[in-house]
Amino acid sequence: MSRTTRLFQLMQALRSLPPPATATRLAALMDVTPRTIYRDIDALRGLGAVIDGASGFGYTLVEDAALPPLSFDDDELEALVFGLREVSEVGDSTLAQAANSALAKLRARLPASQAHRLEHAVLNAVSFRPLPEPGIDAAVLRKATWDEKTIRFEYTDAEDRETSREVDPLSVVFMQASLCLLAWCHLREDFRAFRLDRMRSLELTGASFRPRRVSMLRDCLAKMGESCDAGPAS
């Protein structure tokens, strides 16, 4: 791991851990020695980060020089917190971790007058029933969708019928209490929604449908809007 990468990870750890974060805990998290943490804290302070504390007492990130100043009105802040908390509840594990990381970065840069609004926002998102785990790597699926790459996977529908599908992935959405892929299905020659927990053996075909994803997604959403009872693929 390069020193630059380590310093970046140390900043993120200081944003995320409850203060004060001891050198021992930081060292264990980053798999380095406490002495390395002491040196890296000094380096971050030299780069402009305001970090309170000392060895033996723990460290608190007071001002994060790596992030630009942020300014939100109260409603904007509520919307941001609500959105990120919803992602942490309904997103896959990678997105949930990213949402929590983003909240930590917000917390590091908010003025004291607004900090309590992040911790105690009026709007919240809570899921009392765990979402079904995706049967494929959701991060790989999102990248294929962004890159507009045709994919292939095995799918089990609501009647336990198994098929092999080749689709152009358009968007991952939360609906019907699960994460679903909206896509153009080559088998059905139509738009379909596939539950991620029913997908298996995801692979790239090597084909690309660029640059049609945006227009195809628009058509897909329009069609779904016309048929409110549209369900997962069959």
Rank of each mutant, 00 (worst) to 15 (best):
S2V: 08
S2P: 04
T4E: 15
Q12G: 10
L14S: 01
S16W: 03
P20K: 07
P20D: 11
A23F: 04
R25I: 06
L26F: 03
A27S: 06
A28F: 06
V32Q: 05
V32L: 02
V32G: 02
T33I: 09
T33D: 12
T33K: 13
Y38L: 12
G48I: 08
A49W: 03
V50P: 03
V50Q: 14
I51V: 08
D52E: 15
G53L: 05
G53M: 04
G53Y: 05
G56M: 09
G56V: 14
G56P: 10
F57A: 15
F57S: 11
G58L: 10
Y59M: 11
L61K: 00
E63W: 10
L67T: 09
L67S: 06
L67Y: 00
P69R: 06
S71K: 08
L84M: 10
L84K: 01
R85H: 12
E86Q: 14
V90C: 04
T94H: 12
L95A: 15
L95C: 09
Q97C: 04
A99G: 03
N100K: 12
S101Q: 09
S101P: 01
A102K: 02
L106A: 03
R107A: 07
R107W: 05
R107I: 00
R109D: 04
L110A: 02
L110K: 01
P111T: 05
A112Y: 07
A112W: 06
S113E: 15
Q114H: 08
Q114I: 01
Q114R: 14
Q114A: 08
R117G: 03
E119T: 10
E119A: 14
E119M: 11
H120S: 13
V126H: 15
F128W: 14
R129P: 01
P130K: 08
E133C: 09
G135R: 01
D137T: 04
D137G: 01
A138V: 05
L141T: 00
R142P: 01
A144D: 00
A144L: 07
W146V: 10
K149R: 15
T150V: 12
T150M: 07
R152T: 04
F153W: 00
D157C: 08
A158M: 13
A158P: 04
A158F: 10
A158Y: 11
E159T: 12
R161S: 12
E162D: 14
S164I: 09
V167Q: 05
P169E: 02
P169T: 09
L170K: 08
S171C: 13
V172S: 01
V173F: 07
M175W: 09
M175V: 13
L179G: 00
L179A: 00
C180Y: 02
L187P: 05
R188K: 14
E189V: 09
E189N: 10
D190E: 07
D190K: 12
R192P: 01
A193G: 09
A193T: 10
F194M: 02
F194R: 03
M199K: 06
M199Y: 04
R200V: 00
R200T: 05
L202E: 01
E203D: 11
L204Y: 06
T205D: 02
G206H: 02
A207H: 07
A207V: 00
F209D: 00
R212T: 13
S215K: 15
L217N: 11
C220P: 02
L221Y: 12
L221K: 10
A222Y: 13
M224T: 07
E226V: 07
E226D: 15
S227A: 14
C228A: 15
C228G: 13
C228Q: 12
